[in-house]
Amino acid sequence: MEEIVQSFFNREIAEAALPIVLAGLLNTILLSLLVVPLGLLGGLLLAVFAQSRNPLVRWPLMAWVDFFRAFPPLVLLVLLFAGLPFAGVELGGFACVAIAFFLNTGAYYGEILRAGIESIPRGQVEAARSTGLSGLQSMTYIVLPQAVRNVLPDLLSNTLEVVKLTSLGSVVAVPELLYQARQAQSVTFNATPIVMAAVIYFLILWPVVRLLSRLENRALAGRT
């Protein structure tokens, strides 16, 4: 028992590692603040263009989305970080993470928003167009606000996944939470910093998970 406390919940090491780990947390937050809006923007573009009636527009978009849904984000990240330099393009770890996540999470957000847009009855657009709104205006003022509300739990759930995904930055030396914790661990030969990182992730993301559970189970019926 004493040994477990020493190696996982070591107070001295925790105190020493705290500033390092907190610096990582700051970067995780910054990374999320960069990646989530980027992904949302990419997803929005995908979803809106996927409404096109032209199959030459729709099919490539569908293929694009499926491609990135099939591709593990870590592979994408390694491809950008370790592969691109051979083509003479050297991006930093941070830029690689931003691009990889834009592509990956954009595809997921796109899929969610597309489902949202398609859940809005055609009559809504017809009503909007009949009052003289343009196609873009009906999308912006009529369809999207309802669509986003319909898929809010899915959007939130994907955002949770994106924040968790930022931990992949540790593989390409982006000093986010997990990377910093592993640095501290390798210096101290003690698992406490990683436990700290895990606790921090949990404390930050637990409320989101609870909220999601609520939203997902809203249809909860009483049972005997």
């Binding site: 949770l160 968790k164 995904l165 930022t166 931990s167 992949l168 540790s170 997990l178 990683i194 990182a197 895990a198 992730y201 949990f202 993301l205 637990w206 989101v208 998970v209 999601l212």
Partner: peptide, 9 residues
Amino acid sequence: LFRSLPPLV
């Protein structure tokens, strides 16, 4: 817990 923690962690 396991929904909150990144799999890599």
